[in-house]
């Protein structure tokens, strides 16, 4: 499988504080990869290092193109949709305006029809102010908006955060759908290792800014020692 995203020896820091110490990982075309680990392990920073929302060194390569020096807008234009921690919804804009923002980079009429196939309920809510949606709906809106960017790689930061188990399952069902039907590669950060490993093909476990473990989802799930030491379930 050809690598869509490749990180080589990537480090990142916030001011004086180093958050990533030279990590390397890959995400293949059409692959779902999970990033697991405890709070403060550097999962969020890894996504930010890809999208350019934190200053980084090393190599970030997407589809053969080096993006290490690119800012977030340039990374987005190269086909990365990053749904950040907290979802990054424009809470004061309407649902529809949020979707229009997702299609900002695309020429011509945005493909709202396909989006509504995946998220049919959005149509009835199009004029509602996005900030008044429930947490699960906001997460879905963020997904729909990211999909409208027509990315090659979708990055999700803790999609389950603050959501009820049932809603979380629904979110991950849509993610799986997008992956299988649209061939979208996904890099997902999760605290909830059980659900993430259910969706992902491979996973990396981060510990204090370095990769502690990597392997297929099945391997990680079936190894009891790993499960109790790193995944906590």
């Amino acid at each position: 499988m050809a690598a869509l995203l490749e990180l080589n020896d990537v480090s990142a820091r916030y001011g004086q504080v180093a958050a990533l110490h030279g990590i390397s990982l890959t995400v293949g075309e059409g692959e779902v990869v999970a990033l697991l680990g405890a709070n403060g392990a550097g999962k969020t920073t890894t996504l930010r290092a890809v999208s350019g929302t934190v200053r980084r060194s090393g190599e970030v390569i997407l589809g053969g193109k080096r993006l290490t020096r690119s800012g977030p807008e340039a990374v987005a234009r190269n086909g990365v949709a990053h749904v950040p921690e907290g979802r990054g919804i424009f809470t004061q804009l309407s649902v529809w305006e949020n979707l229009r923002m997702g299609a900002y980079m695309r020429r011509g009429r945005p493909d709202f029809k396909t989006v509504l196939d995946y998220f049919p309920w959005l149509d009835a809510r199009r004029n509602q102010q996005a900030g008044t949606l429930s947490g699960g709906e906001q997460q879905m809106l963020a997904l729909a908006r990211a999909f409208l960017q027509r990315p090659k790689l979708l990055m999700l930061d803790e999609p389950s955060l603050g959501l009820a188990p049932l809603v979380t399952r629904e979110v991950f069902r849509v993610v799986t759908d997008l992956n299988e039907k649209e061939g979208l590669a996904v890099l997902v950060v999760e605290q909830n290792a059980a659900i993430a490993l259910g969706v992902a093909r491979r996973a990396y476990v981060l510990e204090t800014g370095s990769i502690a473990l990597a392997g297929s989802a099945d391997e990680l799930r079936s190894n009891d020692a790993i499960r109790t030491a790193y995944l906590g379930y």
């Binding site: 929302t53 977030p72 997702g102």
Partner: peptide, 13 residues
């Protein structure tokens, strides 16, 4: 409203 999120959508703020 949210420059950081807008940049993630490819907006050259």
């Amino acid at each position: 409203l949210n420059p950081a999120a807008a940049r993630l959508m490819g907006v050259r703020t």
